[in-house]
Design a protein around this nucleic acid. Sequence first.
DNA 1: ACTGTAGGCCAACGACTGTTGACGTGCCAG
DNA 2: CTGGCACGTCAACAGTCGTTGGCCTACAGT
Lengths: 218, 218
Amino acid sequence: MPESAPSGRPAITPDVDLDPPPVASSAPDAGQHPRPRRSAATRAAILAAARDRFAADGYERATIRAIARDAGIDPSMVMRYYGNKEGLFAAASEIDLHAPDLTAVPPEERGARLVRHFVELWESDETLTGMMRVGVTNEAGAERMRQVFAEQVRPLLDAICEVPEEAPTRAALVGSQILGMALCRYVLHVPPAVDLTHDELVAWLGPTVQRYLTAEAP
Amino acid sequence: MPESAPSGRPAITPDVDLDPPPVASSAPDAGQHPRPRRSAATRAAILAAARDRFAADGYERATIRAIARDAGIDPSMVMRYYGNKEGLFAAASEIDLHAPDLTAVPPEERGARLVRHFVELWESDETLTGMMRVGVTNEAGAERMRQVFAEQVRPLLDAICEVPEEAPTRAALVGSQILGMALCRYVLHVPPAVDLTHDELVAWLGPTVQRYLTAEAP
DNA sequence: ACTGTAGGCCAACGACTGTTGACGTGCCAG
DNA sequence: CTGGCACGTCAACAGTCGTTGGCCTACAGT
């Protein structure tokens, strides 16, 4: 039960003003870069370390102390910049699927194209694996995944669906197969799933995704 | 790094003799129930509470204290009976998929049959959802899932595969789709996946699984 | 030269964790 | 009756966690 708010707190917005506005000081300073913000490098280092740790360990086991150590700074800096652990996660879990434009792909190749895209994406960015780790145990992570789903997978289907109201269902079906294979292959390391080559994956999953995209609804 | 063994320990078998033999005392007492073991009820209560907590919270957030509180006993009893947290998890995560005998099902109905079986199973036993929660963040949980895979899913395929060496791959493919939908529907609660009826699930996923079972390898 | 402020470190807090050992209690065999 | 043993509680341990506040340092504005 100690999940949302520890005690008596505003609960949503952190009480410290994290990322205070670029300090225009008193001078107007119109248009110019408003002070280069020396801390930008540190912030980026924290974010990179956080991504790695969340991806490798999941939300609970990724400690702020470990993230700070990886970034080469003090744990308190993490708090200063991101308010608290949830804020850090929110900042570190922004992901972009770089979903391809399916309307530019011949209809019968779309399934295979999608599968190949996601396989390559998954292996190029371990953040995705981390997102899944966190999404499964942490409600904030799950919300993030639903958001990615709604904002980056559904539009893909919206663009090519003849019957618009079927788009959400088809998106979920495609997602279930992609996520399921990612789970077996990159998280659980089920041997036969790990051993599949990219081409085999495309050959097996491509037709499945293709059917979810185009087959008429039952 | 503090994952497998805390320090200098045998690491595998706990040093306390958990579940000591049924106490035959000195009397031979052949065949009779060897002392009803008054603690059986407590042990079962702990196990039930552990299953619930692991399922609801995942491995890290399911605390021994909370499990003991649910079971109405002292945390130290959990240690006495199961050695440590990992031992408790091992005991609580024994699952049985009750996989149907596919050889008794007409070949063209096997995909649909499998999907319906797993959907109903998943909704009747939240332990499965818990297993997935734990399998994603905890290596022991992942190992357990691979084990279930090897011992309960692969034999399913071994029984019906014409080319035996394809069985592992086909099992992994079937598993990826089943697990993927379970992930979206029961863990992440992606709305369109949650809204699907059992019949819709069978109609959509059935042909996919059917293809993984029978289509010739690419 | 003086000062405000952003960037950073240090030490500590309170809470919670898994785990342990000493201690009580009621049942059963002798 | 008496001793042992299974069952169970209590209090504490050592460690880690997220988080906080004070203090130091270097640099920019005046």
